[in-house]
Design a protein around this nucleic acid. Structure first.
Length: 420
DNA sequence: TCTGGGGTCCTAGGACCC
DNA sequence: TCTGGGGTCCTAGGACCC
């Protein structure tokens, strides 16, 4: 092996995460039936019948229920299907418990998503044994202490480690070292490669590329000509070339924060739309302040009844974290963009995040800035202490719209405990 | 089968400057 | 004001991920 192959990277992937976590939680709270042993799915909102399958049990898979399909079609395939609504708070706790075990094996742990982590095991051999031994130890410990299974992929970079953990599930350790690429990876269909999705796969097929090996051995100039820089990236991946670092997560580096919602009915009037947008803005702004950050770009997205999508964004003159300031822009953007069509889905997103540490107040912000900021932060404190519903705007009281809509990301609640 | 919600990155085109 | 071309900033939209 050459010196660039010196790194040892693990990718840890929770098997059917949401479903496993629901099953473990329920068993620990006295339920007799293990969700993993019956046809069951996590997903959607059973009340509105909206939504899709987020995770499925192996028995549900036998009925050909697929991740991403609507609950309606899933029920048609499998009439006895048990449907569980997702509880993201529980998943965050499980994810935190996983991360804290991993951190005992290396200080370099990157949470890639709620159910996937990278771990840099380079030069830990001396202390903790060979990579394969350590991976088995980690896998078995997670099962013993937390009750769910994981796959662990081992290689010399993140891409190969991730491809390895995907090989055969569940409860497995796989290696995919550079000398195993041909036998273990090139034989797979090209759509199994990370970053080859619904739009890219058909383009590759048209070029006669069906396996990862076909892509790896194709002429890179031709790939570049047809698929631009994205093509060069996946060609590199197919050859196992990837060199990004396992970086310890830091939510300061987040690029944007957004929340969106599909509405149970079609919205046809400005008042209702604005009420929903205000509710989304409340959540987004609170998350932003929770990060100790400011934003410079505000964007509103609209999806119509017939699934037409459009968005409108604007760069602000000076950065802000104020709910009111953001909402004023949101309102303007919506009124400029909306073409009077029935609305199915609305979203608010802020980006160009910067730290508020050295924030200089612009003279255009006026004398009320500090007052606005302290009001926002007082409300945040109450919400964090007594729950999101404890305080809301008067205008929502009889509207039938929740004063806060939207979920949170992995690093939004660092104070959340790691206990399952 | 008409498809949820949270992200990131890239590209293309227009405005504007020199 | 006829023309060219390079650079940057901004916005909209698409592709991918989990």
């Amino acid at each position: 092996m050459s010196s660039s192959d010196d790194k040892v990277i693990f990718h840890i992937d929770v098997n059917s995460a949401y479903l496993s976590w629901e099953a473990v939680y329920r068993l620990q709270h006295g339920e007799k039936q293990d969700l993993r042993e019956i046809p069951s799915v996590v997903g959607g909102d059973p009340k509105t019948r909206h939504g899709i399958v987020l995770a499925k049990s192996i028995p549900a898979k036998k009925f050909k229920v697929q991740t991403g399909e609507s609950l309606y079609t899933a029920c048609q395939k499998c009439p006895n299907l048990t449907i569980i609504s997702p509880s993201y708070g529980l998943y965050m706790k499980c994810s935190n418990a996983l991360v804290s075990i991993l951190k005992e094996y290396s200080s370099k742990v990157q949470r890639y998503s709620v159910d996937e982590c990278f771990l840099d095991y380079t030069s830990m051999n001396v202390l903790l044994g060979s990579p394969i031994e350590a991976a088995h130890k980690i896998k078995d410990r997670i099962y013993k202490e937390l009750g769910f299974t994981v796959n662990i992929g081992i290689s010399t970079n993140k891409l190969l480690a991730k491809m390895a953990s995907d090989l055969k599930k569940p409860n497995r350790v796989h290696t995919l070292f550079p000398n195993e690429i041909k036998s273990k990876m090139w034989t797979l269909p090209v759509e199994d490669l990370y970053m080859v999705g619904r739009a890219t796969a058909p383009k590759l097929h048209k070029m006669g590329i069906y396996s990862i090996g076909d892509l790896a051995t194709a002429d890179v100039d031709l790939i570049r000509y047809r698929l631009k820089s994205h093509g060069v990236m996946i060609w590199n991946y197919a050859n196992g070339f990837e060199a990004s670092k396992v970086r310890v997560n830091n939510y300061i580096h987040r690029k944007g924060v957004g929340n969106s919602t599909t509405i149970a009915y079609d919205v046809t009037d400005v008042e209702n739309a604005l009420m929903i947008l205000l509710s989304l803005t409340e959540m987004v702004a609170m998350r932003l302040r929770n990060m100790g950050s400011l934003c410079r770009v505000v964007s509103v997205s609209i999806k119509t009844k017939d699934l037409k999508k459009y968005s409108h964004q604007r760069k602000l003159f000076s950065p802000t974290d104020s709910t009111n300031d953001i909402y004023i822009v949101v309102k303007k953007l919506f009124e400029e963009a909306w073409q009077n069509e029935p609305i199915r889905h609305l979203g608010v997103r802020i980006s160009e995040i910067c730290t508020d540490e050295f924030y200089q107040t612009s003279i255009f912000d006026g004398p009320n800035l500090e007052r606005k900021r302290s009001l926002d932060s007082a409300i945040d404190d109450i919400r964090l202490k007594y729950g999101l519903k404890s305080i809301g705007r008067g205008s929502f009281v009889n509207s039938g719209i929740k004063p806060i809509i939207g979920g949170v990301g992995a690093d939004d609640y660092p104070m959340m405990s790691s206990i399952l």
